[in-house]
Design a protein around this nucleic acid. Structure first.
Lengths: 139, 139
DNA sequence: TATTGTTATACTCTATAACTATA
DNA sequence: TATAGTTATAGAGTATAACAATA
C-alpha cells in the first residue's frame, strides 16, 4: 500500500497530467476558451455528433453539454443542425471559425509541450510514445 | 507543423492526461470532493503554506483559494492558523479528517491507475517512470 | 508604499430534476 | 413507454477589481 516502484509511476503519471492539463488550460484561456470548450472543439474537428454522443465523448451530462453548446453557438464556434433521421435529435458541428480555433489550439499545444519532449532523448521518444499508447489501449 | 513523430507523443501525453484527470475527478467525487479540493488536500499532506503560497502551488488566484479554503474549513477538512511572524498572513493546515481523506484519496488513485500500469511490461515500468520524471524535471 | 488576504461581482462548469416533443 | 434534448435550479470553481489591515 505504500512505496512500491509502481507508486513512483503513479506519481509521475499524476504529475504529468497536472502539467499537461495546466498547459492546456492556459492555452485555452489565451484564446478565451475554457478547457472544456477547447476539448469540445477538438472533438468536433472530425465528427458531427448528436448532443448525447457529444456528452458521452466528453464524459459530461447532456444538460451540461446543452449549456456548453449554447455558449459556443452564441460565439459562432458551433452550429446546431436538426437531424434528418430523427426529429428529436440535434447534431452539433463546428463552424469555420470553430475549426480554425481548434486547429490553432492544437498547434499551440504542440509548441507548448515541445520543451517537455526536449527533455527526453530523441531515440527514446518513440519508446515512450509506444508505452503510453499501450497504456491507453488497455483500459 | 503536421505529422512528426513528436506529434504522436504530444497526442499520447494529452490523452493520458485526460484519462488520468478523469480518474482523479471520479475518485474525488466518490468522496464528495472536487478535483481541486483533492489536489489541495494532497498539497497539505506535507506542508502548511500561507494562502499566497497555496495559491502558487495550485496555480490559482489568491481569491479563488480564499473560497476553496472557506468551503473546506466549513467541512472541517482544513484550518486557518494566523501566522506568528506576520499579522497579515494566514497559514493553512489540514485537520486530522482532511489528512485521512487525503491519504484515502491517494490510495484510491493508486488502485484506480493499477489497470493502466498493468498494460506496460513490469521491466519497462521503471524506464517509463524515469522518462516521465525526466520530462517533469526539465520544465 | 507594498504586501497579505478577503469580499463583491460576474461568469463558466457541473449535475439533478422536471419538462416538451418525438419515437 | 422510452428517448432526445432543454430548462430551471443550485452550487462549485474561477478571475478581476476594490478593499482593509499590516509591514
Amino acid at each position: 500500500m505504500t512505496d512500491s516502484p509502481d507508486d513512483a509511476l503513479v506519481d509521475a503519471l499524476v504529475q504529468t497530467s497536472f502539467v499537461v492539463t495546466g498547459a492546456l488550460t492556459r492555452i485555452a484561456a489565451e484564446r478565451d476558451l475554457s478547457l472544456t470548450q477547447l476539448r469540445m472543439l477538438g472533438v468536433l474537428r472530425d465528427r458531427r455528433p448528436r448532443m448525447a454522443q457529444l456528452a458521452a465523448l466528453l464524459g459530461l451530462d447532456k444538460s451540461t453539454v446543452s449549456g456548453l453548446v449554447e455558449r459556443a453557438e452564441r460565439r459562432g464556434l458551433v452550429r446546431r443542425v436538426p437531424s434528418a433521421d430523427d426529429a428529436r435529435a440535434v447534431e452539433v458541428e463546428a463552424t469555420a471559425e470553430g475549426l480554425a480555433l481548434a486547429r490553432a489550439g492544437a498547434a499551440d499545444v504542440r509548441s507548448a509541450l515541445q520543451p517537455l519532449l526536449g527533455a527526453v532523448d530523441a531515440e527514446r521518444r518513440s519508446a515512450l510514445t509506444a508505452e503510453l499508447e499501450r497504456m491507453l489501449s488497455g483500459r
